[in-house]
């Protein structure tokens, strides 16, 4: 109790919203476990260390992009250009490699390029106050176009095998890829920033009420600018990863990846309207999506169908919270007809 409460506040009132959040997180985790169980029982080859390795490696780019995307969606914005930035950076990576530069030079350059690409989004959103949906759908096309300007329809594939297969290295015989470790560390860092710093607190406040956040001295525009910049830098990281993982720098690398990322974030319980969500939930969302895709791929379901699945899950993630709230109000106030 805060102070002697002469007018006790009914504790029940607090329950629905928090309870709902908890139940969504629980539901996602149950869905992850259930899909693992079902896939292991019905899909041949799913429950093997080899497949687990594939699954985790495939999950890396989505998880990486989901980290900054979570923060951006929490503030009520969105970044649709991440996959295009990854593609653009991939092409620049290839071009610089062809020009004979070393990895030690190329990687930092590419990260800076990604940060600049993100900063362009950030400037348009925060300084000019444009809606991020419009801005990043524009840069989605713009950066993808630039990717093809850099390499045309060619591909750079002359990367040494030592590097490309090195990315697939496993920890002993466990099948767990080595490179998942730094990604997990990055996820933990993002989790700490979001849930255990003042900066993280300000993101939730901005997402719920930009005006109240401004009145509390939070620099809303600056905050958003930095989020987009970081999102661009992480997208560059994914561009580099993609290039080396598949040993190929091409204009169409990572095309459409933003859809999977956003679907995973929303499945993880982040509200598309901002303010509500948490990072552990998002990681569960990424896992669910990756498991479903992997199992269905193993079961030889065609790629078109997988794309439908991603889209369907995205819609479900947006509709379900609203539908549940609606159902709750209906059950509480039954309609008399």
């Amino acid at each position: 109790m805060l102070a002697e409460s002469t007018r006790p506040v009914p504790v029940r009132e607090a329950a629905p919203r928090l309870g709902f959040l908890r139940s969504w997180d629980t539901a996602i985790i149950i869905a992850v476990l259930l899909s693992i169980a079902v896939a292991a029982a019905t899909v041949a080859g799913f429950a093997s260390p080899r497949n687990a390795g594939f699954l985790l490696i495939d999950l890396i780019p989505i998880l990486l992009l989901a980290l900054p995307m979570t923060l951006i969606i929490l503030t009520g914005e969105i970044d649709l250009s991440v996959a295009s930035i990854a593609g653009f950076v991939s092409c620049v990576f290839g071009a610089l490699w062809n020009a004979g530069l070393s990895l030690e030079v190329i990687v930092p350059l590419c990260l800076v390029l990604g940060a600049i690409s993100g900063a362009v989004n950030g400037l348009l959103v925060s300084v000019l106050g444009l809606p991020s949906l419009a801005v990043t759908i524009g840069t989605l096309a713009l950066y993808r176009g630039l990717a093809f300007v850099v390499l045309g329809d060619q591909a750079v594939t002359s990367f040494p095998r030592a590097i490309t297969s090195g990315l697939q290295a496993k920890i002993g015989a466990t099948g767990i890829p080595v490179w998942i470790i730094p990604v997990i560390i990055l996820a933990i860092i993002f989790g700490i920033i979001l849930h255990f710093t003042g900066f993280g607190r300000s993101l939730f406040a901005i997402g719920y009420s930009e005006e109240a956040a401004r009145f509390a001295g939070i620099r809303v525009a600056q905050t958003k600018f930095w989020l987009f910049l970081v999102s661009g830098a992480v997208a560059a990281l994914v561009g580099i990863w993609w290039t080396l993982r598949y040993g190929s720098a091409r204009g169409d690398n990572a095309t459409g990846l933003e859809l999977s990322v956003i679907a995973a974030v929303l499945l993880g319980g982040v509200s598309i309207f901002g303010g509500k969500g948490n990072l552990p939930g998002v990681i569960a969302g990424v896992a669910l999506l990756a498991i479903l895709r992997n199992a269905l791929q193993l079961a030889s379901v065609p790629e078109d169908t997988l794309s439908m699945l991603t889209g369907g899950l995205l819609i479900l993630a947006v509709v379900a919270p609203n539908a549940i709230t609606w159902a709750r109000t209906l059950s509480r106030h039954p309609r008399i007809t």
Binding site: L2, T197, G198, F204, S209, A212, K276
Partner: peptide
């Protein structure tokens, strides 16, 4: 309701919204 408080957040998060640095 619009400027003073973030109505969706709890008492503690609202009261300490101006103290993010101070309490860290």
């Amino acid at each position: 309701r619009k400027q003073g408080l973030v109505m969706e957040l709890n008492v503690s998060r609202n009261l300490t919204l101006t103290l993010r640095k101070k309490l860290s």
